[in-house]
Simulated scan of single mutants.
Amino acid sequence: MRRNQSETNETIQLLLKVARAHFTEKGFANTTLEEVADHANVTRGALYHHFKNKQGLFLAVLDLVQTEIGQRVEEEADRSDDPWEQLLLGCRAFIAAVVETQNKRIMLIDGPSVVGWEAWREMDEQNSMSHLSEQLVVLQEKGVIKPVSVDAMTHAISGALNECSLWVAQLPETAGSLEETMEVITGMLNGFKVSVL
Rank of each mutant, 00 (worst) to 15 (best):
S6I: 12
E7P: 08
I12L: 09
L14P: 10
L16F: 03
L16C: 02
K17C: 12
F23D: 00
F23L: 02
A29V: 11
N30I: 13
E34R: 11
E35H: 09
V36C: 00
A37N: 01
N41V: 14
A46H: 06
Y48A: 01
H50K: 13
F51A: 00
N53P: 08
K54Q: 13
Q55M: 13
G56I: 08
F58W: 02
A60F: 07
A60Y: 07
L62M: 04
Q66F: 01
T67E: 07
G70C: 00
Q71P: 06
R72N: 11
E74Y: 09
A77I: 02
S80V: 02
P83N: 05
E85M: 10
R92P: 01
R92C: 02
A96F: 06
A97R: 05
V98I: 04
N103Y: 07
M107Q: 15
V114K: 10
R121A: 06
D124G: 03
S128C: 11
V137D: 08
L139F: 11
L139I: 10
L139N: 04
Q140S: 13
K142P: 03
P147A: 04
S149I: 06
A152L: 14
M153F: 07
M153N: 03
A160Y: 14
N162M: 14
W167S: 05
L171P: 04
P172I: 09
E173L: 13
G176Q: 14
G187P: 01
L189Q: 01
N190D: 05
G191E: 04
V194T: 09
V194P: 03
V196W: 13
V196S: 14
L197Y: 06
